[in-house]
Design a protein around this nucleic acid. Structure first.
Lengths: 150, 150
DNA sequence: TTGATAATTGGAATTATTCTAATTAAATAA
DNA sequence: TTATTTAATTAGAATAATTCCAATTATCAA
C-alpha cells in the first residue's frame, strides 16, 4: 500500500524538479511516494512492483527514469550504483579507492589505521562488519607515477 | 607484456591457494602475473585481453574464475564488486550503509560530520571528491524498527 | 601410472539496465 | 480555450557484464 505524498514531501519534490527544469508528473509523484512509504532500500524492480499498486499502467522504464531523475535532483541516493565492470587490484594494504569521473580510472588511497577504527566505531552494536569499503568519486589531476609492490 | 611472477609472489599465491585447498595452475599464475605487471585496476575484460598475450588459449570464463578465486583467497580486492541491483533510498542526511550478507538487506548508518571531514582529509591534494561512499558488509542482529522522516 | 577430483573451456543463458521510436502529457503562446 | 512545443512515458528490443553448463583436460595423491 502506497501512502499519499505528505504536503512537505510534495513540495520538496516539486521544488527539486523545478530547480532542475524538470516537470512534475503523476508518475514521479507516485514513485517518490513509494520510496517514502517503506524505507527499506528497494531495487528498481521492487519499486516497480510497489508502484503498480495504485498505478497499474506505469512501466519499468518509467520507474528507472523516475529514480534516475530523483537521484540527479538529489532527492534520492542510489546505493550500490556502479553498473560498470568490477575492477581488480592486488594491493593488500588497507586502502580506499578514488575514481575519476571523467576517465573512469581508479586510484588507491592509503587508509590510516586510526581512521579505519573510527569508521568501525560508528556502527551500532548490532552490526558486525567484516568489510569496509570507502569509495570516493570526483576529479583527479595529473597522473599516478608510483609503482607499488605487493 | 606480462612480467614473470617474482618468486615472492609465486610463493604468496601458492600458499594462499594451498591454505584454501585449491590447486596451483598455469592459468592462476598467469592471471596473477597480469595483475602484478600493471597496477591499474583492470576490469575482467582487460585482464582477459592482457592474459591472452603469453597464453593464447585462456578463456574469459577462466579469467573470471581465477579472479574470483584470488578474491576469495584474499590475494586480490574486487572494487565496485556489487553485481546485485542498485538500491534506492530517500534519506537525505549524510549516512553510510550496512548490508547484511545473509539477507541482503541494507541499513542506513548515521555518519558524524567530523568523521566525514576526517575521511576527506586522507585524500592527496590532486583528488577533488564530490561524493564519498562508506559501505559496510557483515552480519546484522535483530530488526530495524525506526521509521525515519525525510 | 592410474584414478579421483578440480579446473578450464566455449558457448549459451541470465539479469539489470539502457536504448529506441512512437505515443501521450505538460507547459506555453496565441 | 486551443494550438504548439517540448518533455515524459511506454513497450519492447538491445546491451553488457557476469554466471552457468556440460564436456574436456589437468593436477594431485596413492
Amino acid at each position: 500500500m502506497v501512502n499519499p505524498l505528505p504536503d512537505a514531501a510534495k513540495k520538496l519534490l516539486d521544488n527539486a524538479l523545478m530547480e532542475h527544469g524538470l516537470r512534475s508528473t503523476r508518475q514521479r509523484e507516485h514513485v517518490f511516494a513509494v520510496l517514502l512509504t517503506k524505507r527499506d532500500h528497494p531495487t528498481a524492480d521492487e519499486v516497480y512492483a510497489r508502484a503498480k499498486e495504485g498505478m497499474d499502467s506505469i512501466s519499468l522504464a518509467t520507474v528507472y527514469n523516475c529514480l534516475e531523475t530523483m537521484v540527479s535532483c538529489g532527492l534520492v541516493k542510489a546505493v550500490n550504483y556502479e553498473r560498470e565492470s568490477t575492477r581488480y587490484c592486488p594491493n593488500l594494504h588497507e586502502h580506499a579507492h578514488f575514481q575519476d569521473r571523467k576517465t573512469g580510472r581508479v586510484y588507491d588511497v592509503d587508509l590510516p589505521p586510526d581512521l579505519m577504527a573510527k569508521m568501525k566505531e560508528i556502527l551500532p552494536s548490532r552490526f558486525e562488519a567484516d568489510s569496509i569499503e570507502l569509495y570516493f568519486h570526483g576529479r583527479a589531476e595529473g597522473e599516478s607515477t608510483s609503482t607499488p609492490t605487493i
